[in-house]
């Protein structure tokens, strides 16, 4: 048998490649820095090229115009961080708006309607999460089924656009918050930013938030480390369903109407915003701040096209497509380096 050399090895703890320690922690911020730079470049080129683009209200209005997308994308961020996907959110929005409008028309008190539709959205999400966890169904398929169910239900209730005449809804819709001289915003923008803030705190500072990252990093390991994988998974879909319903409520406030074709394809916009904001589709990496930046980027594209005036708004889609592609490739490069 060999004798054992007991000389202590002192510096074995340092990584073999000293460069790594400097480089690695930054790697996870690269996508978000890229998105931030992109946003800055787009904004300054807008200011340079168009009159009045520099007006603060242009930027502030981004939050108002994209409040629904932002809220939905926040929920989507949680789902994608676990490595899942939620395709049902657009349909849940339409169901929420239709249901809200129908119930209010039927004379339900608004303070009952509001919690009712939010709970319904959360329940739809929880149901999908349960199917995904207990029956090991792919999130793509489970939430696709949810999409059809929700959209179909909305269409069954009413195919027409239903106007909302409720006083509370109208009051909120018409309320303006003055941020500064000449800069006003709507309550829905505030709600959206609150959602971002709460999500950011949850992800960074709570066990639930860290479990979300752990599951996205390696679900099998998370299970072996004794983390509540099933509970967390169901929770993120519940959260996403809730956010979608909240988005639907914001939508109904903004347009004071409910329509079954509202929010069509919004789930894809939300996914795109997450990806552009650097949330890794395979899970485990990304920040809700990135998602916020992603939403602002898509919003800013739309604004620039509006300012340009002679471009079809379909160009928004084309540019978003190009950006998506670029960011997916960027993500791939970053994760490959990180290996």
């Amino acid at each position: 048998m060999t004798t054992v050399d007991m000389t202590p090895v002192t510096d074995k703890g340092t990584p073999t490649n000293p460069r790594r320690r400097v480089y690695r922690p930054n790697a996870k911020y690269i996508p978000i820095i890229a998105t931030l730079s992109l946003l800055a470049i787009m904004y300054s080129s807008g200011v340079a090229n168009y009159e009045n683009f520099g007006d603060p209200s242009v930027f502030v209005n981004l939050f108002r115009d994209n409040a629904v997308l932002l809220v939905v994308a926040v929920g989507m961020t949680f789902v994608i961080l676990t490595g899942g996907i939620d395709l049902s959110v657009g349909a849940v929005i339409s169901l929420t708006t239709v249901l809200t409008a129908t119930l209010l028309k039927g004379g339900w008190p608004p303070l009952v309607v509001l919690p009712a539709v939010l709970i319904l959205g959360a329940l739809i999400g929880a149901g999908q999460g349960a199917v995904i966890h207990f029956f090991k169904v792919e999130p793509f398929i489970a939430t696709l089924a949810g999409l059809f169910l929700a959209r179909g239900t909305a269409l069954t209730i009413n195919q027409q656009s239903i106007p909302i005449r409720d006083d509370m809804w109208k009051a909120i819709s018409e309320y303006r918050i003055v941020l500064a001289e000449g800069v006003v915003t709507k309550p829905i923008a505030i709600v959206a930013m609150l959602a971002v803030l709460i999500a950011a705190v949850t992800l960074a500072w709570t066990r639930f938030g860290r479990n979300v990252y752990a599951i996205g990093g390696n679900a099998d390991s998370a299970l072996l480390m004794g983390l509540p994988v099933g509970r967390t998974k169901i929770a993120v879909y519940t959260l996403s369903g809730f956010c979608a319903a909240l988005g639907g409520v914001l939508f109904s406030i903004n347009s004071t109407s409910g329509w079954a074709l509202q929010g069509n394809g919004l789930e894809l916009d939300a996914i795109a915003a997450c990806v552009i904001g650097g949330v890794l589709l395979t899970g485990g990496s990304g920040y809700v701040w990135g998602t916020l930046l992603g939403v602002l980027v898509t919003g800013l594209i739309q604004t620039i096209i509006n300012f340009q005036g002679d471009l079809n708004s379909a160009w928004t889609r084309i540019i978003v497509g190009v950006l998506l592609f670029a960011f997916i490739v960027l993500q791939r490069l970053v994760t490959r380096k990180a290996r």
Binding site: T206, R207, R210, N211, Y213, G217, M225, L227, G284
Partner: peptide
């Protein structure tokens, strides 16, 4: 286990403590 069952996307400290993080008022 043989194949290390940790989450490599998380920090070293988190990998040691996840699920048992020290908390105050629910905040890590």
């Amino acid at each position: 286990y043989q194949e290390v069952n940790l989450c490599t996307n998380l920090s070293v400290a988190e990998n040691i403590f996840i699920g048992r993080e020290p908390r105050r008022f629910g905040k890590i």
